[in-house]
Amino acid sequence: MIAAHGLTKVFRDRRRGEFRAVDDVSFTVEPGRIYGLLGANGAGKTTTLRLLATLLRPTAGTAEVAGRDINLDPAGVRARVGFLATSTALYGRLTARETLEYFGRLHGLAPDVLRARIDLLADELEMHAFLDRRCDSFSTGMKQKTSIARTLVHDPAVMIFDEPTLGLDVMAARAVVRFVRACRDRGKTVIYSTHVMSEVEKLCDVIGIIHGGRLRDEGSLADLRARHGETDLEEIFVRVVGGEPAPPPLLPPR
């Protein structure tokens, strides 16, 4: 389970000064459910997920992830979370098997348990053909499968996906979506960030719309449709974030 309470993250930099990337965000994700975090670029999705994965420390607020507090036991949280993002790449000079062994060992798995786990994941994800090849020679699909296996090697209770289909072709993206669904079916707690409306419609049990670092609205797709009197999720999203920005002025006629 994930329970975020008033999560806030403030960045300070010389150019922008103080910048609230995540502002007082609270939500709950139950086991066996997929929570979709929907937002435009820069809305605060990645920062929220990084806070949950303890890659960043919150400025205020906290969250409980798989029964551990992100502020009090970050290593305990990481031991129970699988984190997959476009920014989590693979070591090109290691083989897929070595990659899984490395992360398995870091998660404290015993050698025989790890071996069995790698066999199981390779069966499930059909990785045997390339398990002993170096990752830098992989196709996008092979890389995606290896990354997925990496997040699952320690069989985490919570899965965090940060725009996992970004840059993937249709087939690879469908495979990821299938895998996310499989995680839910196995009773894992899943949080999934994206800006692709169709993915949210297909996958998510609960949708949170985030904009300017704040959670603007939350509910199931049916709830949102009923509340806004609109069936198209894109229209609902635009309404929730306060409308579209004004179009650029037209060129003057010649």
Binding site: L55, T86, T88, A89, L90
Partner: peptide, 14 residues
């Protein structure tokens, strides 16, 4: 640059 740092930071290593 290669994006593996974040992968490593996700592990439970201090």
């Amino acid at each position: 640059e290669r994006g593996t740092m974040e992968t490593l930071l996700c592990s439970p290593v201090a």
